[in-house]
């Protein structure tokens, strides 16, 4: 039974232009809210610390599109995970993102949770983050005063839940470069149960299969460091190798040097290290199977 003392203002702009104007005027006084699946949880958990106003992005149709451009797929910031999971464009080009989308919460959450919210929230357990890291995505930010800027996904986070987003900016879209032919991508997650669960560890792998060897390997992990991370040294070891489950164990030493998991409520550092290798094993096994199919 919610009854607030001072009424909280709630903006529901219908266009991006309107939204940016409100954002510029209100700055940090108005918290953007897309699907609200994070914001509404904070509102309940810390009712005394909420913002003075909310700025709803849910009604901005222009931010909901998934479109193919010349050399990239553009995903609007307020596209929901349900949309992502069903998108033929993504199924074809970024199957890993479809897999990640299907792993977010359950039906009710997928119908509301947006990819932009997932990224701005910036939890290292955000399921879409490793996929965006390996794509690698370009993050498109816009403000009323300064126009649009593009930030490489790898530069978007500056620390634990810290981003480069300014308080007059909104995240409007992601641009995922179209992968070259022969590219394989996959996502794996381990949580505390099979659905509606926050990741203990998750990983995304994207690579081009040339014959039976991996090229342009991109590997990212979530929940093993303060932010989502790419693993450049492990990627280098995988480069040119033929995918196999053994390979995961071969590179596990380097992998474990590159991640820095901790003990927390959901898991232990030791387990996260173990599962991180296990997830790579799964990814390489799947990749090898796909390569086998392609070869056959």
């Amino acid at each position: 039974m919610a009854r607030s003392l001072a009424e909280i203002r709630f903006y529901t702009p219908k266009t991006l232009e309107e939204a940016l104007a409100i954002r510029a005027a209100e700055r940090s006084d108005a918290m953007p809210m897309a699907g609200g699946t994070d914001v509404m949880v904070w509102r309940r958990a810390a009712p005394d610390e909420g913002p003075a106003a909310y700025l709803s992005l849910w009604g901005l149709r222009e931010l909901k599109q998934i479109t193919k451009r010349q050399s990239c797929i553009e995903i609007g910031a307020t596209a929901t995970f349900a949309q992502l999971a069903r998108s033929p464009l993504l199924r074809e080009n970024f199957p890993a993102l479809v897999e990640a989308a299907r792993h977010v919460g359950a039906a009710q959450i997928q119908n509301r949770a947006t990819i932009g919210g997932n990224v701005v929230n910036g939890s290292p357990a955000g399921d879409s983050l490793p996929v965006l890291a390996v794509a690698p995505a370009m993050v498109v930010l816009t403000s009323k005063g300064r126009g649009t800027r593009r930030v490489p996904f790898g530069a978007f986070y500056t620390g634990y839940r810290q981003t480069v987003l300014e308080d007059d900016e909104l995240l409007v879209s992601f641009e995922l470069p179209l992968p070259p032919p022969g590219t394989w991508s996959g996502f794996e997650k381990v949580g505390s149960r099979r659905a509606q669960t926050i990741s203990k560890v998750m990983a995304a792998l994207q690579a081009r299969l040339d014959g039976d060897t991996l090229h342009g390997v991109a590997l990212a992990y979530g929940s093993v460091a303060p932010t989502v991370i790419r693993l450049p040294r492990t990627e280098a070891l995988l480069e040119g190798c033929s995918p196999s489950e053994r390979l995961a164990d071969d590179v596990s030493g380097t992998l474990n040097q590159e991640i820095a998991p901790i003990d927390d409520l959901r898991s232990t550092a030791a387990y996260r290290r173990f599962a991180a290798v296990g997830l790579l094993r799964r990814l390489l096994r799947r990749c090898a199977a796909a390569q086998g199919r392609a070869a056959a």
């Binding site: 381990v190 099979r194 387990y271 173990f274 599962a275 296990g278 997830l279 094993r281 799964r282």
Partner: peptide, 8 residues
């Protein structure tokens, strides 16, 4: 699951 020790 041998990769993650998850039990189903």
């Amino acid at each position: 699951d041998p990769d993650t020790l998850e039990v189903q």
